[in-house]
Simulated scan of single mutants.
Amino acid sequence: MRLTFERIGPARCVVGESPVWSVAEQAWYWVDIVARTIWRLDASTGVASNWIADEMVACLAPKESGGLITGMESGLFSLALEEGGAVNHQRLARPAELGAGMRFNDGRCDRQGRFWSGTMFMDMAAARPNGKLYRYSAEEGLSQAFVEQLLTQNGLAFSPDGRTMYLSDSHPLRQRVWAFDYDTGTGTPSGQRLFVDMRAYPGRPDGAAIDSDGCYWVCGNDDGCILRFTPDGRLDRKLELPMAKPSMCSFGGPGLDTLLVTSISAGQDPADPWAGATILVRPGATGIAETPFRG
Rank of each mutant, 00 (worst) to 15 (best):
R2W: 03
R7S: 01
A11V: 07
A11H: 11
A11R: 09
C13I: 00
V14I: 14
S18Y: 10
V20A: 05
W21Y: 15
V23T: 12
E25T: 04
W30Q: 09
I38Q: 05
I38A: 12
L41N: 04
T45H: 03
A48Q: 15
D54Q: 09
E55N: 06
M56F: 00
M56Q: 14
A58G: 05
G66K: 10
G66M: 06
L68T: 06
G71R: 00
E73H: 12
S74G: 11
G75K: 06
F77M: 04
F77E: 10
Q90I: 13
Q90F: 10
Q90A: 15
R94Y: 03
R94V: 06
R94T: 10
F104M: 01
Q112C: 08
R114A: 13
R114H: 11
R114Y: 11
F115N: 13
T119H: 07
M122C: 13
M122A: 10
P129K: 11
L142N: 03
S143A: 11
Q144G: 09
A145N: 14
F146A: 13
D161G: 07
M165C: 07
Y166E: 02
R176K: 13
Y182M: 10
D183I: 01
R199D: 13
P202N: 08
P202E: 11
R204A: 13
D206P: 09
G214C: 00
C215R: 09
V218E: 01
G220T: 06
N221W: 15
D223S: 15
D223N: 11
D236N: 02
D236G: 00
K238A: 09
K238Q: 15
E240N: 11
E240M: 07
E240H: 10
P246H: 08
G252V: 07
S265M: 04
A277C: 10
L280G: 06
P283A: 05
G284L: 05
A285H: 12
G287M: 07
E290K: 07
